[in-house]
Every structure is written in structure tokens, then in C-alpha cells.
Computed example of a mutant assay.
Amino acid sequence: MTSRKRPNSDKSAKLNPHLPSKKVAKSVAKEAVPSAKISYSIVHAIPGRIRFRIPLLARDAEYINKIKSVMESDKRVINVRANPQAASIVINYKVGVTPDRQMREHLVSLIQNAQDLAAPKEVTIKSIVRATFDALINLIDSTRKINQARNVVVYRRFRTDIWERILFTSRSIIKKLKSATMFFLPNKRWRLYGNDEMKSQPLQLQAVSEGDAV
């Protein structure tokens, strides 16, 4: 009788039964690949000023807004200028507060994580006053509906009583006052900060000049 020799692979499989097959190994390799980071390069850097080239700036407007807002929320940053056409961003920061190398590493970290960070919100005087007037108008509308429903139940029909006249007149006055106030109010902005280092402190407001507002 002639004996057939089995391939070496079978022998190795017997000796090492726990070795993964080629297909399993390929799938594990695919899962082990880390997610792609945002590519960047430092174009120019001097103490207090650094310029990055980030290709993503040229094709993602939402990322531009996030990275600007997140960087501007840092008290060490003086101003931020983004140029989508050149895919670059220039950051001016305070000198002497943080070592340049450490500040550079911090900015690089913001570049990589800007999409996942919550950008600070901006509020204006107009937005606050508008919300106040809208709340009053909604309150009057709700009160009018309650009064109208009461009149239907009591008088079996819709009736314009003294409360309906008062509420209707008040609503008209508030709407006119809202329009006039919105026209004369300045468009000054504040930025709300809610960073981790300020969780135990009350929310702070910082004025933003018209030139910085985009």
C-alpha cells in the first residue's frame, strides 16, 4: 500500500488548531485599521502666530465654522482667519501664556477633533429680545384661545367680550413694539462658553466685535 503525504499546511493546522484561517485573518486586519485622521501641514509658524494648511477646509464649510468657533473659544487665541480657497487657517494667540510647542500641539488636537467638539453658541441682543416678544405673543394667543373656548361653553357661541378685546389690542401693541425695537437695536453679539473647565462656574458672555462675526 502506498501512503500519501499530507500537505504541510494540514500538519501545521493539526499542531496549531487555534490558528485563524486566511479569511478570518483578513477580516481581523480590516477591522484593526484605524480611522483616517484629518490631514494638515504647518505652513508658517512664529511665536504668537501659526498657519496650517488643511485640505478639508476647501470642501467642508461646516468644518470651517466648527474649527473657528472652537479655536476662538480658547482664551489664549486672539483671532482666527480661515481661507477656504487656499485651504489654510491662520491663528494668532497670546505669547508667554503657554509655551509655543504646547500651544501648537493643542491647536493640532483641535484640528483633529473639531468635528466632534461642541462649538460655542452665539447670541445677539436682537435674538434675546425677539424671543421675549415671541413668548409674550404666544402667551396672549394661548389666553385668547382659552377665553374663546370658555365663551363657547357658556354662551353656546363665539362672543367678543371685554377680555377678547383687551387681549387682541395687547397683541397688536406688542407686535408693533417688537418691530420698532428690532429696527433700532444694535446687532451686537456674545458667545456662550460651556467648556469642561467651566462646568462648575456660571455661563459667561464675551462680546464679539462686528468684524469677527462671520
Rank of each mutant, 00 (worst) to 15 (best):
R81D: 15
R81T: 14
W190I: 00
R51Q: 15
I50W: 09
I173Y: 07
T169M: 11
P7N: 08
T98G: 03
N147Y: 04
K176S: 11
S200Y: 06
Q201A: 12
E62P: 01
D212A: 15
K14D: 06
G48S: 12
D116R: 12
D116A: 13
N65C: 01
M103F: 14
A213I: 07
D10Y: 10
Q148D: 12
A207G: 02
I166P: 01
D161K: 04
Q206A: 01
R104E: 13
R104N: 06
A86Q: 14
I128F: 08
A58R: 09
V90K: 09
I67T: 03
L57W: 05
S142F: 12
R6Y: 12
R59L: 09
R150T: 10
T132E: 10
R130T: 06
A180H: 02
H44L: 13
L205D: 02
R76Y: 10
T124M: 08
A45R: 02
K199Y: 07
V80L: 07
K66W: 03
N195K: 11
F183W: 04
T132M: 09
S69Q: 10
D116C: 05
F168S: 13
L117F: 03
A118S: 02
R189H: 15
N195I: 08
F133E: 13
L185T: 08
K37N: 13
A45P: 00
F158P: 09
S69I: 02
P120W: 03
T132W: 10
V214D: 07
